[in-house]
Simulated scan of single mutants.
Amino acid sequence: MSTHAESPLSFREIFDLPVSVDLRTAARAFGMCQGTAYRLIAQGDFPCPTVRVGRRHRVLTVDLLRALGIEERPVFADEVADGVALTLFD
């Protein structure tokens, strides 16, 4: 387990996350190292709920986004240009 913080996730990376993510990815989203994330979970202070799957922790992306203060997925200009955003609102 690495104790140094990796670079935080970019907005684009956050919005491309699957339905759930591992603890390492969730920690990156908050700008913390995995060791800090485990410590916060043990203290009951991790910023969002985690789900224990065997010996690992998973975080639902919807809970992660909510904890980051993101309630809606923004539309990026290149998605509009590609026609992706138009199908979301039809």
Rank of each mutant, 00 (worst) to 15 (best):
M1N: 03
S2W: 12
S2I: 13
A5S: 15
E6F: 08
P8Y: 08
L9W: 00
L9G: 04
S10W: 03
F11S: 15
R12C: 10
E13Q: 14
I14F: 01
D16S: 13
L17V: 00
V19M: 13
V21R: 01
D22H: 06
L23D: 04
L23A: 04
R24V: 00
R24K: 09
T25P: 02
A26L: 04
A27D: 08
R28A: 11
A29M: 01
F30G: 05
F30N: 03
G31K: 00
G31R: 01
G31T: 04
M32F: 08
M32K: 09
C33M: 04
T36F: 13
Y38I: 01
R39N: 10
L40Q: 07
A42I: 01
Q43W: 07
Q43S: 06
D45H: 12
D45F: 07
P47N: 12
C48D: 03
C48K: 06
C48E: 02
T50K: 00
T50M: 00
V51F: 02
G54A: 10
G54V: 03
R55E: 06
R55A: 03
R55W: 02
R56A: 09
R58M: 11
T61Q: 01
T61F: 03
D63T: 02
L64G: 06
L64R: 02
L64T: 03
A67K: 03
E71S: 11
E72F: 04
E72P: 04
R73H: 06
F76A: 07
F76V: 00
A77S: 13
E79A: 08
E79R: 11
A81C: 14
A85C: 09
T87I: 14
T87G: 10
F89Q: 13
D90E: 10
